[in-house]
Simulated assay, not measured.
Amino acid sequence: MTATVDVVVPVYGKWELTRSCLEHLQRQSLPCNIIVVDDAGPDDTVARLRAGYPEVTVVALDRNRGFAGACNAGIRAGSADVVILVNNDVDAAPQLVARLASAFDDARVGSACPLLLKPDGRVDAYGICADPTMAGFVRYNGASVDQALSAHPSTRLLGPYGAVAAYRRSALDEVGLLDEGIVMYGEELDLALRLSAAGWRSVLVPDAQGVHLGGATSGRGSASQRRMAGFGRGYLLRAYGVLRGRYGIRALVTEAIVCVGDLVLSRDLASTTGRLAGWRAGAVSFRRPRHVPGVDRAIGFLDSLRLRVGDRRA
């Protein structure tokens, strides 16, 4: 039996991106319920949706709740077997929804990962992996499609990258939705860790593809972006008790190197202040599992540093 599908699109302004995203979703080969969540955006997205897209379910939030809050509102607004989160800066190929939905024919699968491409045809993301310190990395970013599909991966798949992420609703019911305590960056990593700890599998779906414009909705490399990324890292270090475990010293050394490098290159403390704020916020987060099968313990210290500077093709 074909699974029913909710596609949740969180938006904050950038109407032209949203319009293109919706046009591609409306051409999907498998019918789906499209839910657009306006995160109290600054433009007239809600009015445009209600006037021109009557078939789309619109959730208009009265205050900005961030990426996780907007996604969760959209998930709760639906009831389909499969939930696919799609950033509004993604143009989905016509078979993306159908291919991702078919992955859930296997009852052990809790999440599925498409092959996302950059506008120039290189790989944007082919799922994410995580090292023993719970640091997450995008797989195959910058590689060619042939490299991603033919090479034997040296990093174990943990779960989907946030730009397009497919989940079994019953798996989300079991482990919980995205943690709204994370401002931005790290929400999908945390959810992937919790799904893995609960015994759910994640699978790659190479023929489910889309183009991720990437960085169109946030300043890539800006102080704000680095601060929010640092917040997510500090939050998860605290929530998962990494510094109290066997990899605590490694995590401290790695974070120190990253923060010093960010200071030298960017001449600000955005990455450091973000981590400190996330560490404080993580103290009141709910308890996380300590054993996560999907974490790749083969990613060593030097490998982790290499991944952090963007060499993610393996």
Rank of each mutant, 00 (worst) to 15 (best):
A171R: 12
R108P: 00
P289Y: 00
M184H: 07
R287S: 08
P119D: 02
L61H: 02
Q225V: 02
D268V: 03
A216F: 02
V82Y: 00
I35G: 10
L243I: 07
R313C: 15
G176V: 03
D173N: 15
A107P: 00
S20H: 01
G221E: 10
P10Q: 01
A103M: 06
D190G: 06
M134P: 05
L189G: 11
L236H: 08
S222C: 06
L149Y: 05
W200Y: 08
F286N: 01
S20I: 01
E174G: 03
G300Y: 07
R306S: 09
S102L: 14
V9F: 05
P31T: 07
R297I: 05
L236M: 15
Q26N: 09
D173Y: 04
V58G: 02
D131K: 05
L22D: 10
G232N: 06
C259E: 13
M1N: 06
T217S: 11
R122F: 02
V59A: 09
T45N: 14
G13F: 10
A60Y: 06
I249A: 13
R156Y: 04
L22G: 11
E174W: 00
A298V: 05
V284G: 01
A80R: 13
H291R: 14
R312H: 08
G159L: 15
V242Q: 05
V109L: 11
V123N: 09
V46S: 10
S285P: 01
F231R: 05
L117I: 12
A125K: 05
P114V: 06
G215L: 04
R65C: 13
L263H: 09
P293D: 12
I35V: 14
G210N: 01
R275G: 11
G214F: 12
D38C: 07
M184K: 08
S170M: 08
A92P: 01
R63L: 09
G110K: 13
A101G: 04
W200M: 12
V9T: 08
S150N: 08
L177G: 12
V175T: 09
P114A: 10
D44H: 06
F286Q: 04
A112G: 12
L305D: 11
E174K: 12
S222G: 11
G121Y: 10
V83L: 13
V36L: 13
L158M: 03
V86H: 04
S20A: 13
A70D: 09
S150K: 04
P289G: 05
H212D: 13
G245P: 08
R76N: 06
R76M: 09
G261F: 06
D62K: 03
R250S: 12
R108A: 15
A251T: 02
S218R: 14
Q209H: 02
Y161M: 12
R201V: 02
L302V: 11
